[in-house]
């Protein structure tokens, strides 16, 4: 996409011509780990009945851990997304306010 700025956008990374927020990278890697954790090959490593962890067989405890990790990951995504969107919203409002108080009549960006 040629109309996108070529320079670095703080807090974002470039992927196939589109800028994505950095938290997507962290979450994507975690998601990949969790997905492999509930199927072969990673789950196969932790698939035994023993040892017991908190009274659960290893296979069951591992799956519970994956479920909790997915929850933690999504909470992280939700909180960082909201922080970013709020910040960008504030920046837009501030930019618009500055543009108006300077008496410029151009489109605020």
């Amino acid at each position: 996409m040629s109309h996108k700025p070529a320079s670095r956008k703080p807090g974002y990374f470039l992927f196939f011509g589109t800028w994505y927020p950095n938290n997507r990278l962290v979450f994507g890697l975690l998601g990949l780990f969790i997905q492999l954790g509930v199927i072969w090959p990673l789950y196969a490593v932790f698939s035994g009945a023993e040892p017991f962890i908190l009274g659960l067989p290893l296979s069951f405890a591992w799956l519970t851990l994956m479920l909790l990790l997915a929850f933690a990951g999504m909470l992280y995504l939700y909180i960082t997304d909201n922080t970013r969107l709020d910040r960008e919203h504030n920046e837009r409002v501030r930019a618009q306010y500055q543009a108006e108080s300077k008496g410029q009549n151009g489109e605020p960006n």
Binding site: G31, Q35, V38, I39, F60, L63, M66, A70, M74
Partner: peptide
């Protein structure tokens, strides 16, 4: 039966 839990873990994302 863990399959029932397994697919929902990432399925919701």
């Amino acid at each position: 039966a863990f399959y029932i839990i397994g697919f929902g873990v990432t399925g919701i994302i």
